[in-house]
């Protein structure tokens, strides 16, 4: 069994991460070659990956934190929808100013995470069941707030949403002869800052390290003297906060709130984390990997838009196929490790 030997020798963690980054690079280069005439190689196309997925980057990093601690959260899509709807209804119907509305939404996310975390860690209920209930609760709450779509017209909020930050390089000259520089929105900056903070937190703080310990082996973590339940609770609270922040960024991109919004978002977040090398069994993971997971998903979507004739559900099928591939790869590594 040559293959088995290969799995034994290779360091699973860094191998998975390099597979992910390699996959992204290959996909992007293929896109550049296939869609060369449509301007795929334009820097703006690359930046658009970040612009349209700013919310997902933050949500996926929250998901990574929970998954490292050995849990999972499938309520994130519904929570994002709820946050968008809350923002829309606060600003348009409640007459609350944009900063106050955002603040209330972030607090709601914290509380949501607190309740879920409490049920998971102190009541000992399976995280999947708790967050499945959370998923339905948040989606239903969205419908209770309003069953009709609310567009956000708040001036300050739209200003945040559309303030272009131009990059000082990578510009090109358009047909009219003016130089156009690629740009990003503030939401991308917020998302990247959040990502870097979570990365540093996981790598350099005591809490970050205890997350890995708890996810790796709960029993040993407890024997080491860690308060396992508290660590798990904190992971869910952090995830709740990141989820609501992701929701705010999502709203900045969509500028509306409606019941069906962000459907399947939880799958995107989980798939991104898994494709990025986070183990479903806990204890292993990295937000940088998740970022590339998000970028891969974005690239598939860009392919479908550039191609033009493929329908949108191909995105979901491709993501599911990728998810299946990476999950199987993970289990092969796990099996090889067991035999060691």
């Amino acid at each position: 069994m040559k293959l088995e030997n290969f799995f034994k020798k290779v360091n699973g963690q860094s191998f998975m991460l390099s597979v992910t980054i390699g996959l992204f690079a290959v996909m992007y280069i293929i896109g550049m070659i296939v869609f060369a005439s449509k301007g795929f190689s334009n820097l703006q196309v690359f930046l658009n990956l970040f612009i349209s997925n700013a919310g997902l980057i933050v949500v996926a990093s929250g998901m990574t934190v929970v998954m490292i601690a050995g849990g999972i959260d499938i309520s994130v899509g519904s929570v994002v929808a709820m946050i968008c709807m809350m923002l829309a209804s606060f600003m348009e119907k409640g007459g609350i100013s944009a900063p106050a509305a955002v603040l209330i939404c972030l607090l709601t996310g914290l509380v949501f995470g607190l309740v879920q975390g409490f049920l998971v860690s102190y009541f000992g209920i399976q995280p999947f069941i708790v967050t499945l209930a959370g998923m339905f609760f948040a989606r239903g709450m969205t419908a209770i707030i309003s069953t009709e779509m609310i567009s956000i017209k708040n001036e300050l909020f739209l200003k945040w949403a559309t303030a272009k930050i131009y990059l000082p390089f990578g510009g090109y000259v358009n047909k009219k002869g003016t130089m156009i520089y690629p740009y990003i929105y503030p939401s991308v900056v917020v998302a990247l800052i959040a990502l870097v903070l979570v990365f540093a937190m996981l790598k350099y703080t005591k809490f970050g390290r205890s997350l890995y310990a708890v996810g790796g082996n709960e029993q040993s973590a407890m024997l080491m003297g860690l308060d396992v339940r508290k660590v798990k609770l904190k992971a869910y609270v952090l995830n709740g906060f990141l989820c609501s922040l992701g929701g705010v960024l999502f709203a900045l991109n969509s500028c509306s709130g409606f019941v069906e919004q962000a459907k399947g978002f939880e799958m995107d977040a989980i798939a991104s984390a898994v494709i990025g090398g986070t183990l479903l069994t806990g204890g292993v993971g990295n937000v940088i990997g998740s970022l590339f997971g998000v970028l891969i998903k974005g690239t598939i979507e860009t392919f479908i838009t550039f191609q033009g004739t493929l329908s949108s559900w191909w995105t979901r099928i491709t993501i599911a196929a990728l998810l299946a591939f990476f999950i199987v790869l993970q289990s092969l590594f796990a099996k090889a490790k067991e035999k060691k």
Partner: peptide, 26 residues
Amino acid sequence: LVAKLKIQPMVATLILFTAGRGIAQL
């Protein structure tokens, strides 16, 4: 996925949960 590859049931069935409706729409 669950029995042979020993993947957590909920995660294994997540794949079809995501893809199923896509296949049906296809």
